[in-house]
């Protein structure tokens, strides 16, 4: 209930004119560029892992040639968007929650209110925009890196034919799938941002440093769980025919 009220206020602030530019740029850079090293590392390993695991599974019933199909579908439709979201939930979301919670417990948010500045406009709206816009880009980036890693692992380590692999990927992955991945990115991005901001914003002065820890923890867990669960529904909606 309280969450819905927060969402309503956040939406009003978000669509009520453009967000403060400096804040937006700062958070967009932090969310986007700041996540790149981590995301790159993780998608490389997740992509390779996808190949290796799929190979291990498929080889048992002689289907190792289907690797391209599996990596294409599993990676681009499901794994990379969710991964980008969960990683960002952990990194960006936790940072958002921690910074807002810290502002709450040291009365900085109240100081804003006293100075007749709407904290929703100044603090929450730019963060929401930044993450919502950056996450789809990160998803697209993860698609490319992950697929390259899968390809590398499949051809170099498992000895799968590279041409077949790419052909299968091209067969099974349509432009629509990429668009769907990016769409998921937008949804997850907004979700991560709003959940994290909510938990950060809800910290109280009397919680002290502990409040920051609690907010961070909740932001990470809730945004990860929500993204994974929502992914299931989105997939069911987008792909079940």
């Amino acid at each position: 209930m309280e969450f819905l009220h927060f969402v309503r206020r956040a939406l009003v602030a978000q669509f009520n004119g453009p967000p403060p530019r400096d804040e937006f740029v700062r958070h967009a850079l932090d969310a986007g560029v700041g996540s790149l090293p981590l995301l790159t590392l993780l998608t490389i390993f997740a992509g390779m892992n996808l190949s290796v695991q799929a190979y291990g599974t498929f080889v048992r019933f002689g289907g190792q040639d289907l690797l391209g199909l599996f990596c294409g579908v599993g990676g681009i439709r499901e794994l990379y968007p969710v991964m980008a979201a969960v990683i960002c939930g952990a990194r960006i979301g936790a940072t958002l929650a921690a910074s807002l919670a810290n502002m709450q417990i040291s009365e900085q948010v109240e100081a804003l209110e006293v100075m007749a500045v709407d904290p929703m406009r100044l603090l929450v709206a730019p963060r929401l925009w930044a993450v919502t816009l950056m996450l789809p880009l990160l998803c697209g980036y993860a698609d490319v890196v992950g697929l390259a890693a899968s390809y590398w692992a499949a051809t170099e380590q498992m000895g799968v034919n590279g041409g077949t692999f790419m052909e299968q990927v091209r067969d099974i992955v349509h432009l629509g799938d990429l668009a769907a991945g990016v769409f998921k990115g937008v949804v997850f991005g907004w979700l991560v941002a709003i959940v994290s901001c909510y938990h950060g914003y809800r910290a109280l002065k009397r919680d002290g440093a502990e409040g920051v820890g609690v907010a961070t923890n909740r932001a990470i867990v809730h945004s990860a769980v929500l993204c994974i669960v929502l992914n299931m529904f989105l997939s069911a909606l987008l792909y079940v025919r």
Partner: peptide
């Protein structure tokens, strides 16, 4: 609230701005 200025007990300075920006903040806003 624009009629008010308030000094909080613990200062409530914005951690991510330098001292000058902190003092300039209400001026830039209003």
């Amino acid at each position: 609230r624009r009629k008010f200025g308030m000094l909080f007990q613990d200062g409530a300075l914005f951690d991510d701005m330098c001292v000058g920006d902190n003092v300039a903040f209400p001026l830039r806003q209003h």
